Amino acid sequence: MVTSPSCALIADDDAFFRIALGALLTRQLGFTTVLEAASLDDALDLLGTRPEISLALFDLSMPGMKQAASLAAVRECAEHVTLAVVSGSSSRQDILGALGAGVHGYIPKALGPAELVKALETVLSGQIYVPPILARAGSAEMSVAPVSADKAQECLARLTQRQREVLQALVAGRSNKEIARLLGLGEGTVKIHVAALLRTLQLPNRSAAAAFGARELR
């Protein structure tokens, strides 16, 4: 359990879900204040005027939300906030897009209350929550052709130690700026490492790398 959480924001246009999620935050996770927003604009207004917000939970289908692009904008303007998606979508594209935008977790609404609380505890503890569906191979929605386990480990073995660290950070949904701070590197250096590991792994983008790393890193 995370100690002394204070203020959380739930951004979702489903009023009943906001009530249910707010109850979990206050009764089981110890938040003293839960703010609500029914649109992206309302959520951004609150993030801009309530600096005490430490956790923000966003739905992907509320008014104004353009998924990954909007989430990336939120990360830019509220870097101090732990940001997670709580969504009814279990699409790999949505999950990878959100993680690529730098959120700290993607939590499906289909989880039961106990599992949802555990997922939130993971996020609040500083870890990244990735739903199990992301690790399941064979989905028709998978945007990157699957490779054999031997081939995947062969690709990983060609990465330098620093590139593996950057890959782990991509799996965690961190932005280049966050990776630079985490590893003590320049942001330009991080971009070079990302480009190099994408070439080595023969992957098209950082979202694909995050999915690969979530499956293959041990």
Rank of each mutant, 00 (worst) to 15 (best):
G186F: 07
S90P: 00
A78P: 08
G184K: 00
E76H: 07
D150C: 00
P108S: 11
E141N: 00
Y129S: 05
V130R: 05
Q153A: 11
T82H: 04
G88K: 01
A140L: 14
V144R: 03
A68Y: 03
A135W: 02
S175G: 04
V166F: 11
E165K: 00
A140V: 11
E121N: 06
A135D: 05
A149R: 08
A137G: 04
R181Q: 15
H104T: 03
A172Y: 00
E187D: 12
P146Q: 15
C155Y: 12
E79M: 02
L111D: 13
P146Y: 12
R174A: 10
E76D: 14
L96T: 09
E76M: 09
P113M: 11
L156K: 03
D150H: 04
S175T: 15
R174K: 14
R174L: 15
H80I: 04
A180D: 13
L134R: 00
Y129F: 15
V130N: 06
P131I: 08
Y106T: 05
A140R: 04
P108M: 10
S90R: 05
A135S: 11
S91P: 00
A137C: 01
I133Q: 06
T122Q: 06
T160C: 05
Q163I: 08
S87C: 06
A172K: 09
S89G: 03
L185Y: 06
T82R: 13
S70E: 12
L111I: 08
A145G: 03
K118S: 11
E121S: 11
Q67V: 07
R158F: 02
R162A: 14
K177H: 11
K151I: 07
V103Y: 06
K151H: 07
H80C: 08
D150K: 05
Y129V: 08
A72P: 01
Q168V: 09
L99Y: 01
L159F: 13
S148V: 03
V117S: 01
Q67W: 00
I107S: 05
A68M: 05
S125T: 11
A72S: 13
H80M: 08
A137P: 00
I133T: 05
D94I: 01
T82V: 15
A78R: 00
P132D: 13
L170D: 09
G105K: 06
A101C: 13
Y106A: 08
R158L: 13
S148G: 15
Y129Q: 04
L116Y: 02
Q161W: 02
S125G: 14
A73C: 03
A101S: 15
A114Q: 14
I128Q: 08
K109Q: 15
V85H: 06
E79Q: 07
V171T: 10
P108F: 13
V130H: 01
K66Y: 08
R92S: 12
S143N: 07
P132W: 02
K66A: 12
L183Q: 13
L111M: 15
C155L: 15
